[in-house]
């Protein structure tokens, strides 16, 4: 139903990257037509009662670089299901081109002094969240960066909400890992 407000034109400020992606997806539709279509689609799905959702998720690979290190990792290709999760997993770590085990990586990063297990855990969890950030940049928002401490779940929650990522992804990709850290388990 059209109201008086529907007759008033307005502007929405969004990042240019997002605008470009919408432009690509909308094809020949106007922005107004495309956004209305998205709303209709959403309403069609919304408030369904009970459901079963079955998905085959495509694993994608990416490389994260820092210093002389290259970390190859896999994650699920994004889809707009509310049951989507990234599920980051490390495939290999290379230091100056040579393969390195996660154990050796920890040793190299923390120096030759006696390793403290908690430092090791922080290190692998820090790497995990950097990989998650990278996956979000590739799949959702190229300019995304986590704006707070690694373990600030409230900040992650707000960021996931603003990116339109599901609660399930937040629970699995963020909270689960923070729980592992709290329980002093390994990130990978």
């Amino acid at each position: 139903m059209e109201t008086e407000l529907d007759k008033i034109q307005t502007t929405i400020t969004i990042p240019l990257g997002l605008k470009n992606r919408i432009r690509k997806l909308k094809g020949s539709m106007t922005y107004k037509q495309y956004l209305s279509k998205l709303l209709r689609d959403r309403n069609k799905l919304a408030h369904n009662e009970s459901y079963i959702e079955i998905q085959n998720l495509v694993r994608k690979s990416a490389v994260y670089s820092f210093g002389y290190y290259k970390v190859t990792f896999t994650y699920n290709e994004y889809n707009n299901s509310e049951n989507f999760i990234f599920d980051i997993d490390i495939v290999e770590i290379r230091n100056k081109g040579a393969l390195e085990s996660i154990e050796k990586f920890k040793k190299n990063m923390l120096g030759s002094e006696k390793l403290q297990s908690y430092q090791e855990l922080i290190l692998t969890h820090k790497l995990y969240f950097e990989l998650l950030e990278k996956a979000i940049q590739i799949e959702i928002e190229p300019l995304f960066s986590h704006k707070s401490r690694m373990d600030d779940y409230d900040a992650w929650k707000k960021e996931f909400e603003s990116l339109g990522l599901s609660k399930k992804s937040f629970d699995f990709d963020v909270m689960r890992k923070l729980r592992t850290l709290e329980n002093q388990g390994d990130a990978f």
Binding site: E49, S50, Y51, I52, E53, I54, Q55, N56, L57, V58, R59, N76, N83, I85, D87, D89, K168
Partner: peptide
């Protein structure tokens, strides 16, 4: 109920009953 399995590919099944 949620089931998730990761191998070469990943698979997920979610069953959601709403008790209205």
């Amino acid at each position: 109920i949620d089931y998730y399995q990761r191998e070469e590919e990943a698979f997920s099944a979610t069953i959601y009953f709403t008790f209205r």
